[in-house]
Design a binder for these strands. Structure first.
Lengths: 198, 198
DNA sequence: GTCTATACAAAGATAGAC
DNA sequence: GTCTATCTTTGTATAGAC
């Protein structure tokens, strides 16, 4: 007898799932309500409006992503693998959560030319987490490598993987490809900082 | 006395401009009509519906992009520069056309979970042009390098640049960064195929 | 907090005249 | 081909009862 989750939880689950699959703008409120088995009034009582609900769902997703990523960093052995754990995390995240068409945050950004301040800050949080976390991992584990530069380059490659998924690339191969390119970027910057031995 | 372009041209210009700035789905028909100074009936007489108009505008944009890219390839001197001309072309395209928020084709894909067949094929054309053209450039100018692999890797990096622009990165620096990463990918594959001279 | 019913707004498309 | 006026559908949000 699994007790049914609260209306609030059901709304968040439905909004998250549908935004991931179809995009937040492409998903009408009615569809979220139908999926959650909740009436309109309940949604607006809890979240104020559709954007409020979506923002909450995105925040929850971001914090889950952060946990997954951190776990993959912790599991990695070598310094290089700790930086590249980003790609392991992406694969794991995609298999453990509701399937998203590419990236829910980039998708929301693409769908929303003029996001409200709450949405904008949530989307910015996603990018900030990406770049800053990469930088701190690099700083901690790859002494001598310019961490900020590395973080930007790997962010670019990671974002490219997501974009290629939107283009229709198969997920696992393109993640592997991104990982390979990122590894190249790491070695290149490492060589530059401390010229090749041998 | 510049003669006013036909209603059809004005519609294409307006749709292209607005789709580039805001996204096709985020742009209401009324706004296109207002910008083009055209009445609704005219739009539907020419293009059938909104999607028909957008698809035509996207096709026109794609063919212009192809021209710009080819010109940059022709102008490049070294084999490596011919492959990397993609990034020169991106910078040039962005400065010579109406400013787009990131990429009109990826934007349309992101906004449209279930595109109609015409739109879907136009979006696929964009990706196919990207990958296939890169492959043929590599085949022609970089003998011995696995052209298909190279084309995929550079497509990924290029797509990453576009995605980073969506994330809010400054355009010129991120294009330069993408170019640098792509150069790395080229050299890596070249070294693998024909071990370094010297 | 939650429901039913409904109001209100936006957007896509068409009718009929010229 | 093009216009004015209007219809239809869809989508967001609220009123009022329980």
């Amino acid at each position: 007898m699994t007790p049914q989750p609260s209306a609030r939880e059901r709304l968040l689950d439905a909004a998250d799932d549908l935004a991931a699959r179809q995009g937040m703008r492409a998903t009408p409120v009615d569809e979220i309500l139908g999926r959650a088995q909740v009436s309109p009034a309940t949604l607006y009582a809890h979240f104020g409006n559709k954007d409020g609900l979506v923002v909450e769902a995105l925040r929850r997703r971001l914090s889950r992503w952060e946990v997954t990523w951190q776990a993959c960093v912790d599991e990695a052995d070598t310094p290089e693998d700790k930086v590249l754990a980003l790609f392991t995390a992406l694969a794991r995240h995609r298999s453990s959560h509701t399937p998203s068409r590419w990236c829910v945050f980039l998708g929301a950004a693409a769908e929303t030319p003029s996001p409200g301040s709450e949405l904008a800050s949530t989307l910015a949080d996603d990018t900030r987490l990406l770049v800053d976390r990469l930088e701190s991992i690099a700083q901690e584990h790859l002494a001598g490598v310019p961490a900020r530069v590395l973080a930007h380059r790997i962010s670019l490659v990671y974002t490219g993987v997501l974009g290629m998924i939107l283009r229709g690339s198969e997920v696992d191969p393109v993640i592997a490809e991104g990982r390979a390119i990122a590894a190249l970027a790491i070695r290149s910057l490492a060589d530059g900082a401390a010229p090749a031995d041998t």
